[in-house]
Design a protein around this nucleic acid. Sequence first.
DNA 1: GAGAATTTGTTTGATCCCCAAACAATCTCC
DNA 2: GGAGATTGTTTGGGGATCAAACAAATTCTC
Lengths: 157, 157
Amino acid sequence: MGRPPAKPSASLDRGLLPSLLGYVLRRAQSAVFDDFANTFDKAGEALTPGEFGLLVLVDRNAGLSQMALARALGIDRSTLVPILDRLQERGLLMRHRSPTDGRTHALALTPNGEKALARFARLVRAHEKRIASQLSAAEIRVLIDLLEKVHAGARSL
Amino acid sequence: MGRPPAKPSASLDRGLLPSLLGYVLRRAQSAVFDDFANTFDKAGEALTPGEFGLLVLVDRNAGLSQMALARALGIDRSTLVPILDRLQERGLLMRHRSPTDGRTHALALTPNGEKALARFARLVRAHEKRIASQLSAAEIRVLIDLLEKVHAGARSL
DNA sequence: GAGAATTTGTTTGATCCCCAAACAATCTCC
DNA sequence: GGAGATTGTTTGGGGATCAAACAAATTCTC
């Protein structure tokens, strides 16, 4: 007597997948991303997690160059260009000319960008609260700590 | 006495980012992904984490339809088509005709695909060992457990 | 200081992931 | 048997990503 013959509603056999850190990480990440999108959608705002991180970085490091920003984000400088274009078109950010180095752009948020970032940060906090709703404060600390370790460990090859 | 004036080598001010679960998750995920790619590159194999997950799912659920697979992967069925095309061109997987339902394809690994998957699984285990090198076995269990909770919690909206 | 080498931002080209909408073939339900 | 749903595919549109080539500007070298 095998198992009930493929109840279509039953979820699949995932084999070793659930024991793989990479797999579980990817699923958690995906769920978090979905909730992020949902939070901003419902609030009538349009922003990706990557864009939020970028805005925070520019806000906290005024005058940053595109190269430095690309490096901090871990992406190629050519990838950054259309992203900045879009943010600039939305009036959130500006590329100023650097007085000291004619090659670089000094990035900065516009006043509008600052106000928008404040709104975004409020939404992100609500989002964070929601995704961590099943976890205690101590568990969140542990989780972040372990994730940092993974990041540091894998990075140091 | 402010801090040393913007040593370019010093890393940026990330503001609230490091305290955000979403952010830390994304960075860990990215580091893990990089190590995965690196592991397969060095072994002369070409595979993404997503493709590995797909192959495991097909292996463990022979006769699966494309719809069921897409649902399990959390992607649209139209997204799956070119992915299967590629895997099929590589001779790892086949779309058989279902005897019971003419609309669906019964997916299965080829003998070659099975052998390749065994090789891939060995590489993935080595990769997992490496990214978890900074963590104890207990920590890994805790980490996976907490990530599952995040996944379940965010999912249940 | 003049020329060579490097750095920066941009453009172009390639690959990939993703979704939505439309379509034909097939199945299901009445 | 016919209406409605399901399945796989195609097409169209957004983006993310990198690599390579380029012009402008800076830095290095002599």
